[in-house]
């Protein structure tokens, strides 16, 4: 049994310790927003956060995250306080920026792109274009949404700054 916290919920999973976190999330916990793209940490489609740090879940054995906090794309938006399952959620500023800039095409890589961007903005709230190149060149997009991702990162950074107290 592996114990972990996923999107604020404690979970106990019957999984072999060397099973990648990606497949635990997708097949055991039904969280399919995190995607399989390459299985070798080349594309970043499987990016999640473990204790606040971006990780490639396709090469991360679930045994390594025992007792840790995992955040996936499904946990990024905020449910209102005391809300029910069907209550509308408030999207994270990065997700909203993705909608405002019409970023997604096929959309398959975007959960990973968004999780990497959230990690970028946590480390560097005002990234330059060079910073974005440094942070997001490890996430592939075959549809070529990079120019729009770049715009959305700047937009999200501005939005987060505006919301700060």
């Amino acid at each position: 049994m592996v114990k972990l916290d996923v999107n604020g919920r404690p979970e106990e999973v019957a999984a072999e310790e060397d099973m990648p976190l990606l497949w635990v999330l997708r097949d055991k916990l039904g969280l399919t927003g995190t995607k399989y793209g390459c299985g070798i940490a080349q594309c970043g489609a499987c990016t999640v956060h473990v204790d606040g740090q971006a990780r490639r879940s396709c090469v991360l054995p679930v045994g390594d995250v025992h007792g840790k906090k995992v955040l996936t794309i499904e946990g990024l938006a905020q449910k209102p306080e005391g809300g029910t399952v069907s209550s509308p959620v408030r999207l994270h500023a990065v997700q909203q920026a993705w909608l405002d800039e019409n970023v997604p095409q096929c959309g398959y890589c975007q959960a990973g792109q968004i999780m990497s961007t959230v990690a970028l903005l946590a480390a560097n709230p005002a990234p330059t274009d060079d910073d974005i190149d440094a942070a997001l060149s490890a996430n592939l997009c075959r549809c070529g949404t990079y120019p729009r991702i770049r715009r959305a990162v700047h937009r999200a950074a501005a939005a987060l700054k505006g919301e700060a107290p």
């Binding site: 997708r26 399919t32 927003g33 399989y36 990024l76 999207l91 909608l99 019409n102 997604p104 959960a111």
Partner: peptide, 27 residues
């Protein structure tokens, strides 16, 4: 106008082929 298919692509709710699930389904 904004894309009509974007929302499920930013919140993880979109169901691609690889996300399919049926009752009693094996892999």
């Amino acid at each position: 106008i904004d894309r009509l298919d974007a929302a499920p692509k930013v919140d993880g709710s979109g169901v691609y082929g690889i996300d399919m699930k049926l009752p009693g389904m094996r892999q």
